[in-house]
Amino acid sequence: MARAHTTQRKVVMTTAAWIIGLAIFFPILWTILTSFKTEADAIANPPKFLFFDWTLENYGIVQERSNYARYLWNSIVIAGGSTVLGLIVAIPAAWSMAFVPGRRTKDILMWMLSTKMLPAVGVLYPIYLVMIKMGVLDTKGALVVVLMLINLPIIIWMLYTYFKEIPVEILEAARMDGATLREEIVYILTPMAIPGIASTLLLNIILAWNEAFWTLNLTAAKAAPLTAFIASYSSPEGLFYAKLSAASTMAIAPILIMGWFSQKQLVRGLTFGAVK
């Protein structure tokens, strides 16, 4: 009897969870479906769910009319470049804080975190002005640097929490055996740290890819990534549901897939280790 009761409960819970899950996912699903419709089908009343003439023409048109590939390339360069650059700066810093902590290490970590909380709009004009003066407004390089800087605290924190989990005893043993600092890093730490570095990389590509304050305000025609490209669809004349959907699907698909792989790291990275 108790068993029947649990099964019944499981059925109810499963049904509820699936209905809610699908409802939350529906806007994404609808966008993907609409991207394969003709414009007429996209606004059909009543809406067509699965039975329409599937077509790929929207993807072709989006590329043809607006050179989608260029925005995609900008996004890849900006998100990838800022993450790699961030890692290069962050790995040594996080390493030293995790393994050679000083009296001030904790204060430095907290201070780094506090820079993340600076509202972007408060420093928008100075950054804008400096970029104009340096002639780098609307360049990919400038955005790589800006996004690297805004994500640097998260990268350092994430790496720090991962490095902290590497047992110090192993390092001490290596030192006893006469390993130099360089050998210690190359042969012992790096292999153990690779999973942590990989998840940090993943989460930061996601964050940089979706960043939509600096990318909207510091780019125009040349360096605009996908966030800015999609925003250009907000003008009424550019509005076609199927094409908007095709452009959106292409913009979110790679990150959606990456995101699914980094669920666990997301919690750690975005709560700065406060929830694990």
Partner: peptide, 29 residues
């Protein structure tokens, strides 16, 4: 529940959608 992993993936998905996309999709569609 059955298919917990899949439901979790469905629920988490919106977080990975770039803000301009989610705003425009909601606004228009």
């Amino acid at each position: 529940i059955w298919g917990q992993g899949i439901v979790r993936i469905l629920v988490i998905a919106p977080f990975f959608v770039m803000p301009t996309v989610s705003a425009l999709v909601w606004k228009n569609m």
